[in-house]
């Protein structure tokens, strides 16, 4: 009992994650706390059992006898088969729910990009957007489309709205963003730790990633897939602007067709 409470407390109160800056980050953190609690309870419980056994049942000097000849116990076995089974089933269903709320279960490839999507080109995996299509219809804010190109060793961001390319990603806060990503040479991965989002960028197979930033600031974009010697240096940053700042930035760039490479 104490163990369970302690585990829950640790899970809820120790924070190992960076700040959350996108709509799905808090959802993610919720999952993390649950997993962390379960893990802590299990781990402490098992370590406790081992330490207890090692101390309590250690062989005293000169002792030569054998322990109890118990070869098994059916109810016990059933018990510790059932408990983990229930736990993993619960965790599985729960994380499915989380994933759905993050938009992961949206069937891909159906016009996330409106007119942008080339009809016959298949889109491969990624995180689609329940939120956006809902928000898009309810609030009327269409998602901001950005085309991401990854190459050795940089990310390029093309804004169809202003038809320019930027080396740094700017997004407005609280507006859904819809990325369509493709790699030029080898596999890269687009990762923003503060958004808790990652998606491989694959040559020959476009992928999509949708999210809504919720906290202004500058965060780094990290390439997470080994892509060559400078893989470690392949970083960029995403600037989450207030809506006004973003518009100014968009305007200023629209004038010069090719901006800051």
């Amino acid at each position: 009992m104490l163990l369970v409470l302690g585990g829950l407390w640790i899970g809820q109160n120790i924070n190992l994650l960076p700040v959350d800056a996108s709509a799905n980050a808090p959802i993610y953190d919720e999952l993390f706390r649950v997993l962390f609690s379960i893990g802590t309870i299990l781990f402490i419980g098992i370590v406790g059992l081992i330490l207890f056994s090692l101390v309590r049942f250690r062989r005293r000097p000169g002792e030569l006898g054998d322990g109890l000849a118990m070869e098994g116990n059916l109810p016990l076995e059933v018990f510790w088969t059932a408990v983990p089974a229930i736990v993993v089933l619960f965790v599985g269903l729960y994380s499915y729910d989380i994933y759905e709320r993050m938009g992961g279960m949206v069937p891909l490839g159906h016009g996330n990009h409106g007119s942008e999507t080339v009809a016959d080109q298949r889109v491969w995996g990624g995180i689609g957007s329940t939120q956006d299509s809902q928000t898009a219809t309810t609030t009327g804010i269409p998602p901001l489309p950005i085309e991401v190109t990854a190459m050795q060793f940089a990310f390029l961001f093309h804004y169809p709205d202003g038809d320019f390319i930027s080396g740094e990603m700017h997004v407005p806060v609280d507006r859904p963003v819809s990325l369509r990503m493709e790699a030029k040479d080898v596999i890269h991965a687009f990762w923003i730790p503060e958004f808790r989002l990652k998606q491989d960028v694959i040559p020959g197979q476009p992928t999509v990633l949708d999210f809504t930033p919720t906290r202004t600031g500058t965060y780094s974009i990290v390439c997470a897939e080994l892509c060559g010697p400078y893989h470690g240096g392949m970083r960029s940053s995403v600037v989450v602007d207030s809506t006004d700042d973003f518009d100014t930035w968009l305007q200023s760039n629209r004038k010069l067709p090719v901006a800051e490479a």
Partner: peptide, 19 residues
């Protein structure tokens, strides 16, 4: 093993994969 089971959860893995 416990971190493995965590990794098995897609939404969790999306953040920590390849880290």
């Amino acid at each position: 093993g416990i971190t493995g089971v965590a990794l098995a959860q897609v939404p969790f893995d999306v953040h920590v994969h390849d880290t």
